[in-house]
Structures are given as structure tokens and as C-alpha cells.
Simulated assay, not measured.
Amino acid sequence: MPVAVVTDSTSYLPFGVAEDRGIRIVPLEVRLGERVGREGVDVDAAALRVALADRRLDVQTSRPTPAEFAACYRTALDAGADGVVSVHLSRELSGTWDAARVAAEEVGADRVRVVDSRAAGMGLGYAVLAAADAAVAGSDGAAVEAAAADVAARCRMFFSVDTLDRLRRGGRIGTAAALFGTALAVKPLLHVAQGKIVPLEKVRTTARAAQRLVELAVKAAGDGPVDLAVHHLGAAGRAEDVAARLRERLDVARLLVSEVGAVIGAHVGTGLLAVVVVPKG
């Protein structure tokens, strides 16, 4: 049986793709005040937006436990999989990768390989899809792992947020970096470098932020075909506009426009606009 591919809920794969491709998803947990649920199962982006609008409500996230990963791996292996490749959001942003690593050691490091995508959203999702393609083609665990790692290495992710406060409070950027976006009427632009969120530049308006995201994506894409994703939280119109501009300027292989889920949304806040760029190898 082919190698089983596992990921976490922050991959934000298009609806139905994981089920169709046999990709197993281990969800992260979200706490909205007293309500606790699994991302993508019990809590969606709409529920998160409502919670974020209530400034009195505490919103938190937590990684899956090693036991949850171990159970998933054992289920896949018991079903006849030759091995497991588990691909996850950046270890610099979450303890999810580490929980998966602990579970892999428990189940058997010779049977389970864990990949740090150094990204989230479809930056992670495209790496997962590459792993699934390799698995379906009959590749062994090492080759499936390499396919995911190759896409992860080529991925670039740029994004804008209305405020850096949630990223600071969640520990995803430091206090010094958070000061980058404190001026009035400033929209901070950031990118993911080596798995970390790093401030990039500041612009004055939402419209200029969208334009700079397009320009940065075009530069990162180069001249060949490219896989793209445009993510947002509560900004569907702006996301579609950015996607349309990218289609006009790039040789697009695949392009997905989607709202992020509750976990990433909890750390960036409403108004997120992000572009994922994966040039074809």
C-alpha cells in the first residue's frame, strides 16, 4: 500500500481534497472563551470572526498532542500503509511539528518521517499535495519526504495585517518587531523566512498593501509556471482582486483563493491578506 500522508489542519487544503487524496488531517485546537473545539471540525473561520469582534473574549490555540499523532500514524500503518510521511506547519510558529516528531519516535522513526514545511496555509498545503502525488506514484518514504521538502524549500509567503498586536501576544513575533507596525495609518507587510515571521516593509493604505503583495509575488515567481494561493480573513473581495491581478501577470499553474481557518486567523486577526508563491521546480 502507498505511503500514507498526514498533515495538520493549518494546511487549509481545498474542500474535499484531503478525503479524495487519502490525506489524513490531525486538527489543532481553538479556544473561543469557554468554547473549545477542533479547527475545521468544530470551529470555523466564521465563528472565529465573531469571537475576534468581541474584545472581551479570550481566543487561544493549542497544538495536537503526541498521542493524537501516534494514534493517526498507527491507524494508517494498521490499514496497510508502507510508512507515513507527516508534513506540518513551521516549527518556528507552533509546537505541532515537535508533537509529531515525538509521536514518530514512539511509533517508530523507521516507519514515520516528519517534515517541517516552514510555512502554513497553502505553503504547507502544496507541500502536502506534492507528498501525496509522490505516494500515489509509488515512491518510498524517503522520496515522498523529499517531494514535500522540495516544495517547502521553494515556497515564499507574503502577507499584510491590520495590526501586529495578535502576532505579538501569541509570541509569533517579538516586541521589537511589533513596534514596526505601531504608527497610525500604517499597514505592515511581512513574510515568512526560514519558517519565521519577519517584518518586510510598511505601506500607508490597504490598497497599497494589496498592490505590494502582487509585486512581491510576481518577483518571487520568476518567469516559469507557478502555484499560487491567496488567503484572507474577512477580506474576500480584496483577495479576489489580488488573485485576478496575479492571473494577468503570471503563468499560473494552480491558484486557490480561500479564507484561513481559526488557528492562523486567531494569530493574525481580521483583515489578513496573504499570497503563497511556489515556483515550479
Rank of each mutant, 00 (worst) to 15 (best):
S9V: 00
S9G: 03
P14G: 09
F15I: 13
I23D: 04
R24G: 12
V26D: 05
L28W: 08
R38A: 13
R49H: 02
D58A: 14
Q60F: 06
S62R: 13
S62E: 01
P64H: 06
E68W: 05
A76R: 15
A76H: 05
L77K: 05
D82T: 15
R91M: 11
L93F: 01
T96P: 05
D98Q: 15
A99F: 01
A100K: 10
E105P: 00
V114C: 06
D116L: 06
A120R: 11
A120P: 01
M122Q: 13
D133A: 13
G138A: 06
G141K: 11
V144E: 04
A148K: 10
F158V: 02
F159G: 01
R166Y: 11
L167P: 00
G171V: 09
A176W: 11
A176F: 11
A177W: 00
A178Y: 01
L179C: 11
F180V: 15
G181R: 12
A183C: 11
L184E: 12
K187H: 11
K187Y: 03
P188Q: 08
L189T: 03
A193V: 14
K196D: 12
T205L: 00
A207C: 03
A209G: 09
R212A: 02
A221P: 00
V226N: 10
V226Q: 09
G234Y: 03
A235M: 09
A235W: 04
R238M: 10
E240R: 15
V242K: 10
A243R: 06
L246F: 04
R247D: 13
L250D: 00
A266S: 15
A266Q: 09
G269D: 06
T270A: 14
A274R: 04
V276S: 10
P279Y: 08
